[in-house]
Write a protein that binds this DNA or RNA. Structure first.
Lengths: 163, 163
DNA sequence: TTGCTAATGTTATAATGTTGCAAATTCCGC
DNA sequence: GCGGAATTTGCAACATTATAACATTAGCAA
């Protein structure tokens, strides 16, 4: 399930989206959850690119669709999609991005390019285990982990020679 | 510089705050930065406890002080304090907490208790290095790292037997 | 003093997220 | 198909968090 193409590498993004939607249908079926038209449309919008989208950005596109939606519509759809691991919220951006590991249990970590805005989600077992060891040393019981790294992706780093 | 007492352990919090303020004065002097009364007061408020405070919480206390402040006053003070590493913003809470490693270069990681709200900042070199290795594998250049772990601190975990 | 810069005050507004309740839709056993 | 329960959506209002723009004041040095 799901593509692993890097967002900043050329890839067939149509296929990327199609795969994400197909995965979503499968996952929802497995959980007896209803991927209603609104929810599916929101997921599709989130997947339009690998740049995280704010809730109000989604809302604006729904409005263009002719869908006269209010904020709760979008937030509810996003809550649903998060619940089934289909999208992630990026706390440092107040925005949402499609999960590229949907269906697999994973401890995501996000590389966010300051220049192009693309986000790469990756699973880093070494980071995760080091983190859990550190928490254990403090007798802390982790329930939810947020790891967001802001910086420059390879393409932007070479283009602009930041830093 | 600065105390390392765990927030959920009993400790002399008066001393904790006093130390933080003293450290702040030193650091600002070293950088020729002005720790004005407003900035110092905001720092003191942030340090009232180890529970992160929202900007509007700070604002409310300033109002009680008789200081008729508006949001920009608080946000500007917080920006200043962040700039000199005296406070951290917790993205997942939209709130601010005193830095317990002020002055030292550090890659903070935050353990946030869902039950009592206390936050423990710790420096975890193993996490940091694993994270940088993972980023390097993607040829990503990190500039800023956010690690926030939500869960239960030892005291609350034993009190309430969550999970 | 004069003039410069940093800091603060003030007003308004933008951006993000939530509550509560009513209406519609869907599911499911009969 | 039918009826009742549960889920989903519509909708209006509101709450919270953050910033923009511009005027004013304080600190400081020539």
């Amino acid at each position: 399930m799901s593509s692993s193409a890097l967002p900043y590498r050329p890839h067939n993004h149509q296929a990327c989206v199609a795969q994400a939607l197909a995965d979503a249908r499968t996952i929802c079926q497995q959980h007896n959850a209803r991927l209603t038209p609104t929810r599916e449309r929101v997921l599709e919008l989130i997947w339009q690119s690998h740049k995280p989208l704010g809730a109000y950005d989604v809302l604006a596109v729904l409005a263009e669709d002719g869908h006269n939606a209010a904020p709760p519509t979008v937030y509810r759809a996003l809550d649903f999609l998060q619940q089934y691991g289909l999208v992630h919220r990026i706390a440092s951006l107040n925005a949402f991005t499609g999960c590229t590991h949907a269906g697999k249990s994973h401890n995501g970590m996000f590389l966010i390019c300051r220049s192009c805005g693309n986000v790469l989600e990756l699973t880093a077992p070494a980071v995760s285990s080091a983190l859990h060891r550190a928490a254990a040393e403090e007798s802390f019981r982790p329930e939810d982990v947020t790891i967001e790294v802001s910086g420059y992706c390879p393409r932007c780093a070479s283009d602009d020679a930041h830093g």
